[in-house]
Nucleic acid binder design. Structure first.
Length: 835
DNA sequence: ATAGGGTTAG
């Protein structure tokens, strides 16, 4: 008996032949009256429903019949049928029952039983069967050996598979299937190089009978595809033609797929055109090939041709088109095609669902997302055995969908329900990304640090890092951002470094350290458009417009494509640095020089530029000349300009337009109210305030946070919850007193109250940014900048007060508000009035 | 035995 070394220690165990089958849903009983014909009848029943209970009274003894060998044959048939119908669990139950009734499995039984073990990834079971095979002396049967190799391969223990393979080959009983089974094991585990090696040794193996067949090619061709080795694939294509194997649809499909995976779509198309027999798979290979290299129009063209030629579309076809749309964030198209698919009667599978959910996420289609959720639940309930690996993907897609639809509570609830052992990197990443973008970014960072705990045994990937950095960007959390940067450097996320580095640029810029952003940019080995525009945006929001334009010129020099977003960033930079003429020039020439047609967003930016410069009439004229309907962003830009330049009439016009567009929000009302207050039109102020009350729109509470040594501390308006409150308020009063002596006059129009000026002054000192500053002064070492972030725009009075204060405190004040950065130092601010 | 999927930034 040839006992493989890996099984030997287990053989001494008396539990060897113990079978851990739990299911008892299927019984096969044999009575003394069972005849071959009644047995055949039972088999037919099984064919229609393998779960049918084969009820026969009493146990059946093998010795009581004259058709003994026939019965084993029928058992084999029953098991084989189960396996073919993919009811592997039933196959094993039948096998156990066969043993219980004392029938002896033969060389025809084991291959199927092993196949069932492999499909179910029941390694322990498979080993037990292996033990029985050794006892029965069938270990020299090549079918059985091949079954063992493929069982171990399927269970992922390639070492065992390889050992069985080597022994089989050494004993000289190996055939093509032996080699192909081993190759299939390697393919399963993505060991593509091993597949190629195996194929080489198969060709050079000195055996007359042994030549690679169609199956061998079908195993090795995808390996070439995955390795991008199309030269090798072409050789194999030559081999296929010499052996006339290329006429096999499977081989043809594998060749098309190989070229498609190597992004050589023209070669793939040529092979496809020459194929005499095509099936859906051939078409699908080409469709997905085009879709994945971004030639989506050609993919859609093929899809249309498939419909014209009335090729029966299957799930894969539909899924490929749906995922193509989803990847392009074309959510509406996703939903349309999905509807068509459902009407055609095709059954969606896990992949379809995941793609549809990603489409829902991209357009925030909560209702359709919930429908898909219901469908998924229905499907999971009706499916016989659910697959944990596939389940987690659907769950991840659902969590992501809910997060992108801003339903963080549902997302969190779903996350909580998943056992931590079932959560994978993506589960964590979609949650972190969800909080970073659509919830409280603090929660995102908390989740990120929880994830890093060893007990969860998941390692963040580049996507996770990117999401965590987005959270830092939103919070301006330079300290945590730096820590993550250090983590990135330690781990080295080489393959996706461009993504991560772009996020780092964004994080440093938004955390107030645009020079660090530049450093990251300069050290990148590869850059893409986003790298450049991120850096430009960084310079733009810090009011360093000249440098932004320098980067733009470098970008042009580097030959990168200049698109609409690039121009948006350029105009944004000009507007925040008061570079009116340059901005207007770029706007005028963007179409002529770069072929980029200005969109509504570009108009909004230019109106902002003109507005800041006080050229309100020009701005209004431009709005009237816009080739498209002015969007709400345009009117908001005008309204803000009216605030700065105290134009009540135009402000009223802009506010009326915003109401027309039904996109007025708390910001609109606050601006308008401030404009009225500034003009001392108190009745109008009261009217706006009562309007707000009636429409249920509340002023978002102003909130500022300041970066402490260890943590970030948040203050709301009039906040007295901090333990240091008393000291904070004392300090503000003291500072205000001192700067008043320097000439500071409180700008009372910024307080939303119709009371006398004295009291308004009191309310102004409660503004969150002043509280944050006082806390910063109290806790920061002299000389170190104080970094404050505010959720709304910084209040004009606070801005003036801080500018005065910067003369008498020993800190630079770096304020990030919802519009830009203010570096306040020695009595002046980097914004130079361009908010 | 061949085809298909989710998480990222301006």
């Amino acid at each position: 008996m040839l006992v493989p070394s890996f099984l030997a220690p287990k053989l001494s165990n008396s539990t060897l032949l113990h079978f851990p089958f739990k299911s008892t849903s299927v019984f096969a009983f044999f009575s003394s009256s069972t005849t071959p014909s009644s047995f055949t009848h039972l088999l037919k029943q099984c064919k229609s429903c393998i779960k049918a209970k084969l009820v026969v009274a009493g146990a059946f003894s093998p010795s009581a019949t004259t058709w003994l060998s026939q019965v084993v044959f029928y058992w084999n048939n029953l098991i084989k049928r189960s396996v073919i119908l993919r009811c592997n669990g039933s196959a094993l139950v039948l096998f156990r029952e066969m043993l219980r009734l004392d029938w002896n499995p033969d060389g025809y039984t084991y291959p199927y039983v092993l196949k069932a073990c492999g499909e179910l990834r029941y390694l322990f079971c498979g080993e037990s069967v292996h033990g029985m095979i050794l006892v029965s002396g069938l270990e020299s049967n090549v079918f059985v050996c091949n079954g063992l190799i493929s069982m171990y391969g399927k269970c992922g223990v390639l070492g065992y598979a390889r050992q069985m393979f080597d022994e089989t080959v050494v004993r000289g009983i190996g055939d093509v299937v032996t080699w192909n089974s081993m190759a299939a094991g390697y393919v399963q585990k993505d060991e593509y190089k091993k597949v190629l090696e195996l194929f080489d040794s198969m060709v050079s193996f000195n055996c007359f009978e042994l030549r690679p067949d169609a199956v061998s090619l079908v195993n090795v061709l995808p390996a070439c595809g995955c390795l991008g080795d199309w030269r090798r694939g072409k050789q194999l294509q030559g081999y296929a033609i010499r052996r006339c194997l290329h006429e096999d649809v499977f081989v043809g499909n594998a060749i098309v797929d190989m070229y498609a995976k190597c992004t050589r779509l023209d070669d793939a198309n040529k092979v496809f055109g020459l194929m005499e027999v095509k099936d859906v798979v051939s078409w699908n290979a080409l469709v997905t090939g085009y879709s994945q290299i971004g030639r989506f129009d050609e993919a859609l063209g093929l899809f249309e041709r498939m419909r014209e030629e009335e090729i029966e579309l299957n799930v894969v076809t539909w899924s490929a088109v749906i995922s193509g749309y989803a990847q392009r964030d074309l959510g509406y198209e996703v939903l349309n095609i999905f509807k068509e698919m459902m009407l055609s009667g095709a059954e969606p599978n896990v992949i379809t669902l995941v793609s549809v959910l990603s489409g829902c996420a991209s357009i925030g289609a909560l209702r359709q997302g919930k429908e898909t959720h219901c469908y998924a639940i229905k499907r999971m309930l009706s499916l016989e055995g659910s697959n944990a690996e596939e389940d987690i993907m659907v769950l991840n897609a659902l969590i992501d969908m809910y997060a992108k639809c801003k339903e963080m509570k549902i997302a969190q609830a779903m996350f909580d329900v998943i056992d931590w052992r079932d959560r994978n990197v993506v589960t964590w990443t979609v949650m972190i990304g969800g909080y970073a973008q659509h919830g409280d970014a603090n929660d995102a960072l908390e989740l990120f640090s929880a994830m890093l705990k060893d007990e969860y045994s998941v390692i963040p990937n580049a996507y996770t890092i990117a999401c965590a950095l987005v959270a830092c960007s939103r919070l301006s959390s330079l300290r945590i951002g730096r820590q993550i940067h250090a983590y990135v450097l330690r781990q080295g996320y080489e393959p996706t470094m461009v993504f991560v580095a772009n996020c780092l640029i964004d994080m440093y810029a938004k955390s107030g350290d645009v020079d660090a952003a530049r450093l990251v940019f300069d050290n990148m080995r590869q850059r893409n458009t986003v790298s450049w525009t991120s850096l430009m945006t960084g310079y733009g929001m810090h009011g360093r417009g000249e440098e932004a334009l320098q980067v733009f010129n470098m970008m042009r020099g580097a030959g990168l494509p200049i698109d609409g977003v690039t121009f948006l960033v350029v105009l944004y930079a000009c507007s925040h640095s008061g570079m009116v003429d340059q901005g207007m020039n770029y706007f005028k020439n963007m179409k002529g020089d770069f072929g980029v047609v200005p969109a509504a967003e570009h108009y909004a930016c230019v109106i902002d530029i003109l507005g800041r410069a006080g050229r309100l009439n020009e701005a209004m004229k431009l709005i009237e000349d816009m080739p498209m309907e002015p969007t709400s962003v345009v009117w908001v830009a005008l309204l803000s300009a009216c605030r700065v330049h105290k134009n009540v009439d135009l402000a009223e016009h802009a506010a009326a337009k915003l109401t027309e567009l039904e996109s007025e929000n708390d910001g609109t009302y606050t601006l308008l109210s401030n404009i009225y207050a500034n003009a001392k039109r108190w009745k109008d102020v009261a009217r706006v305030r009562s309007l707000m009350k009636h429409s249920g729109i509340r002023k978002r509470p102003g909130c500022s946070w300041v970066q402490g040594k260890k943590e970030t501390v948040t203050f709301f308006v009039g906040d007295r919850s901090h333990p240091m409150s008393e000291k904070i308020y004392d300090l503000i009063e003291d500072l205000i007193h001192r700067i008043k002596a320097m000439g500071y006059i409180p700008e009372t129009s910024f307080a939303l109250h119709d009371v006398d000026d004295e009291e308004k002054g009191d309310l102004l000192i409660e503004h969150s940014e002043k509280l944050a500053l006082a806390y910063g002064i109290l806790t920061t070492t002299p000389g170190v900048p104080i970094r404050i972030t505010k959720n709304l725009r910084v209040c004009g009075d606070c801005h003036t007060a801080m500018t005065y204060m910067s003369k008498i405190i020993e800190h630079e004040i770096i304020v990030r508000d919802s519009s830009r950065f203010h570096h306040i130092k020695n009595g002046s601010c980097s914004c130079r009035g361009f908010w």
